[in-house]
Design a protein around this nucleic acid. Sequence first.
DNA 1: AATAGATGTAAGAGACGTTAACATAATTTT
DNA 2: AAAATTATGTTAACGTCTCTTACATCTATT
Lengths: 205, 205
Amino acid sequence: MNEERASVEIAAKAGYHHGDLRSQLLAAVRQLIEEKGSENFSIAEAARKAGVSSAAPYRHFNGKPEILKAVVTQAMEAKAVEMRRVMEPYPEGSIERINALGKCYIDFARQHPGMFRLIFGITESHEDDEILSKKGEQVFGIVVEAVAKTLGISTDSPEAKKRAYLLWTMVHGHSWLTIDGKARKQGIEFPEDQLLAEISQRVLG
Amino acid sequence: MNEERASVEIAAKAGYHHGDLRSQLLAAVRQLIEEKGSENFSIAEAARKAGVSSAAPYRHFNGKPEILKAVVTQAMEAKAVEMRRVMEPYPEGSIERINALGKCYIDFARQHPGMFRLIFGITESHEDDEILSKKGEQVFGIVVEAVAKTLGISTDSPEAKKRAYLLWTMVHGHSWLTIDGKARKQGIEFPEDQLLAEISQRVLG
DNA sequence: AATAGATGTAAGAGACGTTAACATAATTTT
DNA sequence: AAAATTATGTTAACGTCTCTTACATCTATT
C-alpha cells in the first residue's frame, strides 16, 4: 500500500518521451478517484496531471474501462498483500487472526473509499473478467483458509466456505455502510473492535 | 416550495406541452439505469425517451445530481413500503418477519441492481442530504422495530440498534456480493432462505 | 384582453472519450 | 552505421454529454 512515488519528477526517467507514463497515469487516476470520487474523475485530467495530452493514455490502454481495470487490479493485489501481512503476527487458527483480517478489510474501505467503491462498482461492467475474478478469489481464499484453520476443518469443505462467506457479508456490509456514513447517521456508536469481535464470535462460535 | 405535486400518476394530461414530463423523466431514468447500468446512462437519453429536447429536463431539475436524487428518493420510498408489506403476514416479533425483511431487501437488489448501486453510489456526493438520510432512517427504523419486538426489548435500546445493525450489515453485504456475482463465483451455493435463517438465528438467537 | 409565470426549443459553450493522421524517439534488422 | 520498424507522443477532430442563454409558446391570473 505504501508504494507511492513521492514525486512525479523522480519517477519520470525523462529518457523516453515520458518514460513512465503508464504507471504515472495509474497513480494519477488513483489520486483523482479519492479526490473527486469514483464517478467524477476523467482520464483527461489524469493525463493533464501526468503532463501529457489527453490522447496519450490511449497508447497504453484501450479505453477508460481498461484503465480502471488496471487500477482496480493493482488495488486488489495490494489489499491481498496487506491482509496477509496483518494476520501474520497472530497464531494460525486464532480468532485474533480473523479479527485482524476483518479490520484490514474495513480499514481499506475507510482509507480508500473511492477505490473501494470503484472495485465494487466496476463489477457492473466487468462481471466476467478473468483477472478481476482471480484477484477476488485470492482475497476470499485468504478468509476461507483462516476460517478453516480456526474451525479445524478442511479448507475445501463447504462449511468453511459458508462460514467465511457469512463473515465476508458482515465485514463487506459494514465497510459499505461505514463509508456511506450510514452507521454514524443511525447512531451506531459502539467501537469497531467490539463489533468485529462480536461478528466473528457469532459466526465462528 | 412544495415539490410533492400530489399523486403524479394521473397520467399525462397532454394539455400542457407535455403535461407529465417530470415523472416521465424519472421513469425513463429508472429504466435506463437498469438497461445501461447505473453509470452509463445520460439525462440526454432520458429526455429523448420522453420525447423532449435535451434541455427540457432542466426546467424541472437543477441538474443531473438532483434528478438522480429524485429517482433514488422514489426508490427508497418504494423499498420501505415494500418492506412493510412483506412482513405484514407474519406475526409481530416472529423470526419469520425478520427473514421476510431480509429477503425483501435482497430481492430489491436483485431485481433492481442498477438502482441499488445508484442508491449506495450516490451517497458519495449526497452524504449529508437530509431527504435521503430520512429515507435511509425509515428503512433502518423498520428493521430496528422488528428486531426489538423479536427480542422483547425497547426500540430505543442500544441493544436493539446493535442487533439490527448486525443484521443490516449481513443482508446489505450479501446483497452487494449477490449483484456483483461474487457469491456465485466463489462457489457459494446453499439456498438463500437457509442463509437468511442462519443469519437471523446467529444475530438474534 | 393583458400580463406574468411555466414549460418547451434551438443553439452553443465547454468537457470528455476516443480515433485518425502525423511526428519523433528507441530498438531491431540489415 | 544506415535503414526499417516499433513505441510513444502531439494536434485536430467527431460525437456525446451537461448545462446555459435567448427566445417562443402555452396556461393561468388579473
